[in-house]
């Protein structure tokens, strides 16, 4: 089911949470709404679900105008951040709830069979008689998903689905959700503030800030071609260096970066730690090492360049470097944005 949002606006009291957001989600797509807290991503998700109503604009499911359809008739599956499992019901009863209360009459056997199928799908066979307090967080999340899928939703909406879980469980569940999505082909929209999660899971990432879409595209697009300094900074560790652009080339003391299409004037050069190089002699920005952090995948140098700005750079694990060493930072790759 294709979802279309057209100029959707939502205001809470005096705070405008969503400013005219337009978004198309193709049928069967898995899309992430990514943004810092307060960027309006959860509000958008709740409006798609029908848990909030848009103040202006429209939301279409396929060709049907769903803007004013209440949540119980909208046919969405919603997975809440803290699962919202019914604590007084067993896992099986939780999953069966939607089928029991629906207008479509189903026999007891039919419901029992479907509950079993769903529990198998989320790999929780045999836990049907447990209560939610008796299972782990990751298992609860999977029950919440099974419960949402039980009513054959047209779209699946997940609010920070893995936010409350620890890192290892999160990674497993991510891969697993991707598998489930590929198996069922259901249009899925999820909200996260974790860029790694969005890039890992989604076909398309929509980055929001202050109630507006700042960039959308495939994970490759947003990573390799960030449209603004905000996107670049939000997606991962970033070094910011002040420089000046002249004739399509940005300069900082001792280093240059190509800046096609950037007008002359002050610019900021943004580069990931891996996009900076370190050498004890040669070209580059003179710098002094403040600290070296050892990590499983290599070493990270925290250095201060001659202008006083702090930079972080990743170097191979075998590089010999220690605090207070002097050296030169080179910019291997960088994105240049005019200073506004």
């Amino acid at each position: 089911m294709k979802i279309t949002l057209d100029q959707v606006v939502k205001t809470f009291d005096t705070f405008r949470a969503v400013h005219g957001v337009s978004l198309e989600i193709e049928s069967g797509e898995l899309v992430a709404l990514l943004g810092p807290s307060g960027s309006g991503k959860t509000t958008i998700l709740r409006m798609v679900a029908g848990l909030e109503y848009a103040d202006a604009g429209s939301i279409h499911f396929g060709d049907e105008d769903a803007t004013n359809i209440p949540v119980r008739e909208r046919g969405v599956g919603f997975v809440f951040q803290h699962y919202a499992l019914f604590p007084h019901m067993t896992v099986g009863e939780n999953v069966a709830f939607g089928m029991k209360v629906s207008k479509v009459r189903r026999s007891k056997d039919e419901i029992a069979r479907r509950v079993e199928d769903l529990l198998r799908l989320v790999r929780l066979e045999g836990l049907g008689n447990r209560f939610p307090t008796q299972i782990s967080g990751g298992q609860r999340q999977r029950v919440a998903l099974a419960r949402a899928l039980a009513v054959d939703p047209k779209v699946l909406l997940l609010d920070e689905p893995f936010g409350a879980l620890d890192a290892n469980v999160r990674r497993d569940l991510r891969r697993w959700l991707r598998e489930i999505h590929d198996e069922l082909g259901i249009t899925t929209l999820f909200v996260t503030h974790d860029q790694e999660e969005a890039l890992d899971l989604a076909d398309r990432v929509v980055i929001l800030n202050e109630g507006r879409i700042v960039q959308q595209g495939t994970p490759e697009d947003v990573c390799r071609r960030p449209g603004s300094a905000f996107v670049m900074k939000f997606l991962g560790d970033t070094n910011r260096l002040a420089g000046t652009a002249t004739g399509g080339i940005a300069r900082v003391s001792g280093a240059t970066v190509p800046a096609p299409g950037v007008g002359d004037g002050p610019v900021e050069i943004l580069a990931r730690p891996v996009d900076l190089g370190w050498a004890t002699a040669g070209d580059g920005i003179p710098a002094q090492v403040a600290r070296v952090i050892d990590q499983p995948q290599g070493r990270r140098i925290l250095a201060r360049i001659e202008t006083g700005e702090a930079v972080e750079l990743d170097v191979p694990a075998d590089m010999q470097v220690a605090a207070s060493d002097h050296g030169y930072v080179s910019i291997l790759r960088g994105n240049v944005f005019p200073v506004s």
């Binding site: 029908g50 848990l51 599956g77 019914f86 709830f97 419960r147």
Partner: peptide, 14 residues
Amino acid sequence: DPALEEAAQSLGGS
């Protein structure tokens, strides 16, 4: 948790 009520609504409960 108000989410419990919302969850029940999203599952089609009156």
